[in-house]
């Protein structure tokens, strides 16, 4: 059977604006992926354990509150603590350009700012999976 791409879509932190996360979830589904949607107010710990139990290929997070510099790297840190290096992690939201190099250095492979088409995110995921298909 073909290998399905599984993606965890999560909203870390307290920000309640989930329009973007929900639109992405639907777009990924329409691109044939299996999307585990975990909803609002997720701690980095919840995101990482869910990603393990669900055996996802991708973690996609969205933050509009400005807490990305704290929460995104924290997720990467937890993944590293558990020796997980084969999950593609991407983030999106209101993220100033100046912050992007730091997030990438922390291991966030793709950062998508307002106006990014969902097709670009789909293509990025398909082109950057860390696990063989």
């Amino acid at each position: 059977m073909e290998r399905k791409i599984r993606v965890l879509v999560a909203k870390p932190g307290l920000d309640g604006h989930d329009r973007g996360a929900k639109v992405i979830a639907r777009a990924l589904r329409d691109a044939g992926m299996e999307v585990v949607y975990t909803g609002l107010r997720q701690t980095p710990e919840q995101i990482v354990t869910a990603s393990i139990q669900e055996d996802v290929d991708v973690i996609a997070m969205s933050i509009l509150s400005g807490a990305h510099n704290h929460l995104f790297p924290r997720v990467m840190e937890l993944l590293r603590e558990k020796n997980i290096d084969d999950v593609l992690v991407i983030g999106g939201g209101v993220i100033p350009d100046d912050d992007i190099p730091g997030l990438k250095a922390a291991g966030i492979a793709g950062v998508f700012t307002p106006g990014s088409p969902t097709s670009e995110i789909v293509a990025f995921i398909k082109g950057n999976l860390k696990r063989g298909s």
Binding site: G13, L14, D15, S65, G66, H70
Partner: peptide, 22 residues
């Protein structure tokens, strides 16, 4: 900020990274 809007003090674990942001 979001912790205030959700009724958490600034030193609550869920407030980390959010204090004074929005």
């Amino acid at each position: 900020d979001l912790p205030t809007q959700i009724g958490y003090d600034s030193d609550h674990p869920l407030s980390q990274g959010e204090v004074g942001k929005v």
